[in-house]
Design a protein around this nucleic acid. Structure first.
Lengths: 112, 112
DNA sequence: GTAATATACCTCGAACGTCTAGGTATGTCA
DNA sequence: TGACATACCTAGACGTTCGAGGTATATTAC
């Protein structure tokens, strides 16, 4: 189980990263993430849909209704150019924090 | 600048990690982090003190008032055994999320 | 034909977390 | 005496997740 704070920090970069791989709809994102993470991340619908709406409102992603061949309607999302830039920012931020943690977790250097 | 969500996710493991290196007081933690992170993380007092109180309430750290030789009183914190275990959990969580992101950010494998 | 299950979307409100802006108090230096 | 650094604290605004609820359609089993 991953803490709420970590979920909050990783959800945005994860969704943007997934969408960088091409068009995908909400319900599929949820199940893709469970698969990709090997069950570590168990996103629920109540978590993901509001995030998708916020990302669209902020202009990072854009949605389009489509009909699948089995008659169900799906809302497909894709990354905008602005969203692609945001993903790069998110990557940089994540990596900079990760580097600080890595430094703290590294075996202490010997000052000799 | 690092997003609020990332701050929220990294504050706990960072503080526990810093305390794993020995006793330290709140005000010092704030300035240590700015130095360690090279200014990437600009923790404010309003962020750190409530976190320290929560960590103590949860039993991960313990505090003790001490007088410095210049007459100022400082509240020193140190890690408990329980807190050391919690730090290991936090490390694992962070790394598992980091691994998923790394996978997503890796160049796509060619399926040929 | 109808019950159960899977797909696929949505929202409300409780709970929890940060952070701005304020506060207190002491020591040092000009 | 004023400015600044040190060193602690908290109230309230704001933002976020997530459980629990809702709608609707397609498929499968009985």
């Amino acid at each position: 189980m991953v803490s709420k704070a970590l979920i909050a920090a990783s959800t945005k970069p994860m969704i943007l990263s997934i969408l960088a791989g091409g068009e995908i709809y909400g319900y599929q994102i949820i199940h893709s993430m469970i698969e990709i993470s090997g069950g570590i991340l168990e996103w629920s619908e109540g978590t993901i849909y509001p995030v998708l709406h916020r990302l669209e409102k902020d202009g990072f992603i854009r949605s389009q209704w489509k009909m699948s061949n089995n008659g169900r309607h799906r809302k497909y999302y894709r990354l905008t150019a602005f969203g692609r830039k945001e993903l790069e920012k998110e990557k940089k931020q994540w990596m900079s924090v990760h580097n600080v943690l890595s430094k703290l977790w590294a075996p202490l250097p010997s000052f000799d």
